[in-house]
């Protein structure tokens, strides 16, 4: 499995959509224009040479000092062909959104909700775009690099372990990182 999938992708979509790629010992990555991610996903699943039936993971990287800031990463696997592919798409801090691939792979549903929950990246046309792990009252996105390290948002009245003072529900800023 050397470059077959990457070559197919470039042949079908061209350099306007496949912005770059790299390959190392069968570990292949394609960098995709974010607006086209759903079309690329549909092709990769349906094309007979690619046959990526399964989405293993969707995650995100916060390159805080770069622009576009967020890099959404998709890990694909072909059960029939036994090969893998990684897709990356960069979205800007000002408008972090890209199309959902839930219509292609149902398994992407919760992965995309988690990326939204932790990084605030919005997936258009997602059937259920809610937080998945945190509670609805939570403000902000905790895995962003500029979220305070100890930015707790308690739901019940509690004591601060450092001062012993009662803290009402809402945000405690016991800030050891950068300010939001």
């Amino acid at each position: 499995m050397s470059h077959v999938v990457l070559d197919r992708l470039l042949e079908r979509f061209g350099e306007e959509v496949i912005l770059g790629s790299h390959s190392h010992r069968g570990d292949e990555t394609a960098i995709v224009a974010p607006t086209e991610i759903a079309n690329v996903a549909r092709f990769l699943k349906d094309d007979g040479r690619c046959s990526f039936e399964m989405i293993s993971d969707v995650t995100c990287v916060d390159w805080i000092d770069e622009e576009p800031r967020f890099e959404v990463v998709y890990h694909l696997y072909s059960i029939s062909k036994k090969h893998r592919l990684r897709l990356k798409a960069r979205v800007p801090e000002g408008d972090p959104r890209l199309p959902s691939v839930t219509a292609v792979w149902g398994g992407a549903n919760w992965f995309e909700r988690e990326v939204f929950d932790m990084y605030g990246v919005v997936f258009d046309d997602h059937p259920d775009p809610r937080r998945i792990l945190l509670y609805p009252e939570f403000e902000g996105y905790p895995l962003r690099k500029d979220y305070p390290l100890n930015g707790e948002q308690p739901l019940v009245e509690m004591r601060d372990p450092d001062t012993g003072q009662l803290v009402m529900p809402g945000r405690i800023s016991r800030d050891q990182g950068r300010e939001v």
């Binding site: 945190l134 905790p142 979220y147 707790e152 948002q153 308690p154 004591r159 601060d160 372990p161």
Partner: peptide, 18 residues
Amino acid sequence: STGGFYQNYATVEGIDRI
């Protein structure tokens, strides 16, 4: 007891806070 090695946005650092 104390939150252990967790000190982050998610964990209650010891149930005696509640």
